[in-house]
Amino acid sequence: MIGGAPVTQKFADEIGADGYAAHASFAVDKMKELMGASVLSA
């Protein structure tokens, strides 16, 4: 998973990243989505 100001969704797609988030707060939501919310709520 990558993200932040220096990278874009396009770049994440090009390198095969599992996820991309433009901001740290969005990264948490994306990680929950990738792992399944039930895993992180335990």
Rank of each mutant, 00 (worst) to 15 (best):
M1E: 01
M1Q: 01
M1G: 01
I2Y: 02
I2E: 03
G3Y: 04
G3H: 04
G3D: 02
G4W: 04
G4Q: 05
G4T: 05
A5F: 03
A5H: 10
A5N: 03
A5Y: 05
A5M: 03
P6E: 05
P6D: 05
P6N: 12
P6G: 06
P6V: 07
V7E: 08
V7K: 10
V7N: 11
V7R: 09
V7T: 15
T8R: 05
T8H: 05
Q9I: 10
Q9V: 13
Q9L: 13
K10F: 05
K10C: 03
K10Q: 14
K10H: 09
F11Y: 14
A12H: 12
A12Y: 09
A12C: 10
A12W: 11
A12E: 10
D13C: 06
D13L: 12
D13Y: 05
D13V: 07
D13I: 09
D13H: 10
D13P: 02
D13K: 15
E14L: 15
E14N: 13
I15S: 08
I15V: 15
I15G: 08
G16L: 11
G16E: 09
G16Q: 11
G16V: 11
G16Y: 11
A17L: 14
A17S: 15
A17R: 12
D18G: 11
D18F: 11
G19M: 05
Y20C: 02
Y20K: 03
A21G: 10
A21Y: 03
A21R: 04
A22G: 07
A22S: 14
A22C: 02
A22D: 09
A22W: 00
H23G: 00
H23F: 12
H23W: 08
S25Y: 00
S25R: 00
F26T: 09
F26Q: 14
A27C: 03
A27K: 00
A27H: 00
A27Y: 00
A27G: 13
A27T: 00
A27D: 00
A27N: 01
V28E: 06
V28R: 13
V28D: 02
V28Q: 09
D29I: 05
D29P: 00
D29A: 11
D29V: 06
D29K: 10
D29Y: 02
D29F: 02
K30Q: 11
K30E: 12
K30F: 00
K30A: 05
K30S: 04
M31S: 10
M31L: 15
M31E: 03
M31P: 01
M31W: 04
K32Q: 08
K32C: 07
K32E: 06
K32G: 04
E33R: 07
E33L: 06
E33W: 03
E33D: 12
E33V: 02
E33H: 06
L34K: 13
L34F: 07
L34V: 09
L34E: 08
L34W: 06
M35Q: 06
M35T: 07
M35I: 05
M35D: 01
G36C: 09
G36Q: 06
G36H: 09
G36L: 10
A37E: 15
A37T: 13
A37I: 10
A37W: 04
S38Y: 12
S38I: 07
S38V: 14
S38C: 03
S38H: 14
S38N: 15
S38P: 10
V39S: 07
V39D: 01
V39H: 06
V39E: 10
L40P: 06
L40I: 15
L40H: 04
L40R: 08
L40A: 08
L40D: 04
S41L: 13
S41M: 14
S41E: 15
S41C: 08
A42Y: 07
